[in-house]
């Protein structure tokens, strides 16, 4: 089998896994002000702790999907990794800052019983959780849309090239989808008022997502789509509408599955529109990066394939185990008194 194609597909899967998994924890983080504001200060604090505890055991593992996507790109398509990471220099810097402050927020917020301290880390969590999916969307959309890449496979644009309307729309689509996905995750994992509020907000967010996602995928489809990318576009749209419907009928599991499928099929659409390029050029006389000219040697691809075949199932098993272990719904009554130092 053609291993270049296999690795193109696997990297697509890693991105899909990333948007499906970290997507909901981005959503939960970004919805802190919307769903984590209660009747009084104490209620607000408890609600926020409930929300953060639902993603507590998972966000760190979820983020590894991004690192693995990066590492796999480096190993399987070094030229793609090199061109993409140097082209998206400033957006990636922002993404890293967003992830850093957000992760520190998760870890440090509860470490001091001090209102000002917690508010600052809340801002870090919210800001990071909004910025990161937006930036991921901008980057991925630019990859598919095409960028000025010269004959030496070097990026020849500037940071302004990256801020084109389609890419910004793509950023908003990933952000909106993460918010919806996060809201549906909360309906599934919480009890009480948060669950109800998340359900109501989820409907609004879902409809908003439908608009930006359809616009993004439609625009991408018209410029660089294939038959198969239109098929996945339709699947994405149908699953999103199904998710909104399931949410309205309090079928929380199905609503969450629906947005998960949407996230995965959005990535599939991107990758199908991209194939056989990995980074098309918009420059006359430039060279597009393809799965052929960007890839590693056959030996490296073989080694990587064996590693993926052997170890991915193991990872999936223990990841599944954690979701099973922490499957219980959480409500404000489960939140213990703060144990942090003041």
């Amino acid at each position: 089998m053609d291993l270049q194609l296999v690795w193109f597909g696997l990297i697509g899967l890693l991105w899909a896994g990333y948007l499906v998994l970290e997507g909901f924890d981005f959503g939960v983080g970004a919805l802190l002000p919307a769903l984590g504001s209660g009747d009084d200060a104490e209620d607000t604090e408890k609600r926020r702790r409930v929300m953060l505890t639902t993603i507590g055991p998972h966000w760190d593992g979820n983020e590894v999907w991004l690192l693995t996507a990066g590492g796999a790109t480096f190993a399987a398509f070094p030229e793609w990794y090199a061109t993409m990471f140097s082209a998206f220099y400033l957006p990636l810097l922002l993404l890293l800052v967003a992830l850093i402050v957000r992760n520190m927020g998760f870890e440090y917020r509860h470490k001091r019983d001090d209102v000002a301290w917690r508010r600052r880390w809340d801002l870090a969590i919210i800001g990071g959780s909004v910025a990161a999916p937006f930036l991921v969307g901008v980057a991925l959309t630019n990859v598919v849309r095409g960028l000025p890449i010269d004959a030496d496979l070097e990026y020849a644009g500037s940071v302004l090239t990256l801020l084109n309307p389609l890419a910004i729309l793509g950023g908003l689509a990933v952000l909106a989808l993460s918010l919806t996905h996060g809201a549906f995750f909360l309906t599934l994992k919480t009890t009480g008022a948060i669950r109800e509020d998340a359900r109501r907000l989820g409907t609004t967010l879902g409809l908003g997502t439908a608009v930006v996602a359809v616009l993004t995928l439609g625009w991408l489809g018209l410029t660089s789509g294939s038959v198969w990318s239109w098929v996945t576009t339709v699947v994405a749209a149908v699953s999103l509408l199904g998710a909104i419907g399931a949410n309205a009928r309090r079928r929380e599991g199905w609503a969450f599955v629906g947005t998960a499928v949407t996230a995965a099929t959005v990535v599939a659409t991107y990758f199908l529109a991209l194939y056989p390029d990995v980074m098309p050029t918009t420059l006359a006389g430039g060279t597009s990066l393809t799965i052929e000219n960007a890839s590693s040697s056959p030996l490296t691809l073989q080694i990587m394939t064996w590693a993926a075949v052997v170890f991915t199932p193991v990872v999936l098993v223990y990841t599944g185990y954690t979701y099973y272990t922490f499957r219980r719904r959480i409500g404000t009554q489960h939140i213990p008194a703060a144990v942090a130092v003041s």
Partner: peptide, 9 residues
Amino acid sequence: GAPLAFEAL
């Protein structure tokens, strides 16, 4: 790249 990918996985 390979050791880095192995490290992640």
